[in-house]
Design a binder for these strands. Sequence first.
RNA 1: GGCGUUGUAGCUCAGUUGGUUAGAGCGCCGCCCUGUCACGGCGGAGGUCGUGGGUUCGAGUCCCAUCAACGUCGCCA
Length: 591
Amino acid sequence: MDNSFARVSCGAITIADEGRSVELAGWVHRRRDHGGLIFIDVRDRDGITQVTFDPSMNEVFTRAETLRSEFVVRVRGSVRRRPAGTENAKLATGEVEVPAAQLEILNESKTPPFVIASDEEPAEELRLRYRYLDLRRPRMQRNLTIRHRIIKAMRDYFDEHGFIEIETPNLIKPTPEGARDYLVPSRVHQGTFYALPQSPQILKQILMIGGLGRYMQIARCFRDEDPRADRQPEFTQLDVELTFVQQDDVIEVMEDAMRSVWQRALDETIPDPLPRLTYAEAMRRYGSDKPDLRFDLELMDVAELFAGGGFGLFAGLAESDANRVIALRWPGGAALSRRDFDAVTELAKTFGAKGLAYISLAADGVKGSIARFVDDALAAKLRERTGAQDGDAILFVGDASRDATDVAGRLRLEIGDRLGLRDPKAFAFCWVLGFPLFEREDDGTITFTHHPFTAPLPGQEALFDTDPLAITAQHYDLVLNGYELGSGSIRNHTADFQRKVFRRLGLTDEQIEDRFGFFMEALTYGAPPHGGMALGLDRVAMLACGESNIRDVTAFPKNQAARDVMMDAPSTVPDQSLKDLGITIVEPPKT
RNA sequence: GGCGUUGUAGCUCAGUUGGUUAGAGCGCCGCCCUGUCACGGCGGAGGUCGUGGGUUCGAGUCCCAUCAACGUCGCCA
């Protein structure tokens, strides 16, 4: 290589480099062929530099005429100031250009299925099919860079605070609880299976029993459930665990870490301390255990205002504490048409509502579906309770408490969306605490809210046999902009108590021994008190990037059918591979 | 598995109450062009309208089924 040319990045050349002999390598971003003069924008990860080709350079010019989009080139020349009046203020390198003295075509490119140098967004299916082309676009390069900075900031923070990163295995023991496991057949022990970890939960607890004290890991996790915009079958967690801590210790470490990450990765300052809500309060005020605190518009209970009144439905609901009648203020909602309200009602029905009542407030009185039941006195009370003013509407959801809360919580987000109150550049963190330890499933059985290793609040052990659903857990969720970033808890650290929890969940001693015997035994050898947390890194990155889809912060995501459409995975395997594993496919795949 | 939205040129999209030869912008190809940077000018190629069936004199348009993508519910210790 000719060392008189300095290799430089396409984004970094400035007027200070004038006269320097440089070598650029990158992709042909755009070409502008004037016949007697050719401009090529050469792009690499750092930016774009304009290269010019003059006909006086016979051979080089002729070769330049063959350049097309996404060809890979190496160009050498001396940086020069652009002629006066031809500078491009839109480009960081717009004051200079590189007249090509040498041009090497390192590789040609077929015409790409979509234009990389365009703001037009191709269908996601196409972006995933040709992910390597999509990754060349600024958006993905930016998102992956931010994701990297977040991960680096996390590792730096925890390293500085005495944590060590420890890898845990990906081939582990299946646990039938929780999500479906991805299973990996064993060749050596035919007929048996490893599972990919849904999280390193038990392993990190055993690390605590192993005396490692402060652990963190950027851990890959696997859950065989249907993907969503904020969920992938394969995802990454920031996993953390500490010994000799109480709930507040973990919360303080984690929120300090997040403050540090936001500062270092995004140069954003977030509050200290972060707001905290109880689970009950979050459900009551926001209708969600992961409230979006970027805007207010809280759910207001108004059942007693309708008690004994003319609107029979709400008057009836008001007779029992098991019901809620919730009012939601819709700023400016009085401008909506009957048709608009009908559409919102239909939407509410998709949320599970049986119906939706509403009134519009105007200077000349109250209108809307239940206006005839709202006299001046009631209207005044509703205004006072909700803060609604002339020009606003109020939606009413009345139902059994749980159903009304859920519907109203979703309607609140819908209103926030329509009013543009969910700013992707705003970050509203909060903690949600005080979750119940157990929940009742639809079939009536008792299950855990978080996971079976979560400890109850001290002193509540007595409720175990009398009223288990009343037990509050030492469990905390970190929430950002209406997304659950992650959960943590103080764990049970005695075998006796852990066994009690398992039994309460309906496991027999044999099942406990079979599935968790190794762990139960570990607890009997001086397990220290411990607790920790795990955050969904993909969601953290998604929100930090202002994206609404986890796939846009993942280099190689699966689609909604859990397929990798670039590799075409999953796929069939040769018969011999199945034989080695002792596996027979009963029903051959279709197609 | 349920519900919703979408599917028309390589890409992004338009296509009226069913009516002659299905369009636009970008991209692509050819020719011209020495200061462009979304270069410009002229010309051109490119379509099983997702697939299958039905209604009709006639279907991109209406009906049924089906496939795919996305969103969502179920599911997600």
